[in-house]
Design a protein around this nucleic acid. Sequence first.
DNA 1: ATAATTTGGTTTATATTATAAACTACTTTA
DNA 2: TAAAGTAGTTTATAATATAAACCAAATTAT
Lengths: 96, 96
Amino acid sequence: MFPKLDPILHSELRLAVISILAGVEDADFSFIKKQTGATSGNLSVQIDKLCAAGYITVEKGFKGKMPRTTCRITEAGLQAFSNYVTALQEYLSAGK
Amino acid sequence: MFPKLDPILHSELRLAVISILAGVEDADFSFIKKQTGATSGNLSVQIDKLCAAGYITVEKGFKGKMPRTTCRITEAGLQAFSNYVTALQEYLSAGK
DNA sequence: ATAATTTGGTTTATATTATAAACTACTTTA
DNA sequence: TAAAGTAGTTTATAATATAAACCAAATTAT
């Protein structure tokens, strides 16, 4: 009746990150930080987890002389996000 | 952009409990346990938290000789559930 | 030139949360 | 009356999230 919710996505900040990345080609650390309002430390950790899960890729380079971390959602990430939304609907709609 | 998600409801088991209670007049411990597949211990703890938050009421009585714990959602609980669903929609729909 | 501040993060420690294991108390069935 | 089942609670442990501290380089101010 209640499907298991993907624990990687069932996290406020990670869900926000995936949600952002699902809508754009790619996004860098600073942009995601501004959009989410997260602290650097928290964001760094959660990005690592999404990366370890294979839901996003992280590319480190430079914009001029400043370091720049660019994130992009993967196919697996898009699929997981879609599954999560579907599963969650079971919970949200049960009270009807 | 991303609203804060109520931490009381942003828990797989507590959300399932609220979701069940939102659809019925009341439900007892055993019924909720069967529907969710949760262990007794976990369910007991999460019901306590929902109760402490004022989202449900818990009534202890007896069905014949056996103890029976009946849960019911409160107005505050219904409101919180509604708010949670609305907030979550921001996350789920952002990738479109 | 150099000192202070900002950018762009990582690492590590702590607090919170969820889960599982162990236990209590009573009832029913063999 | 002994074993097994019901209906939970309490406590311990594992997992998670968050915050604090730190690092390195670049930029800006003195």
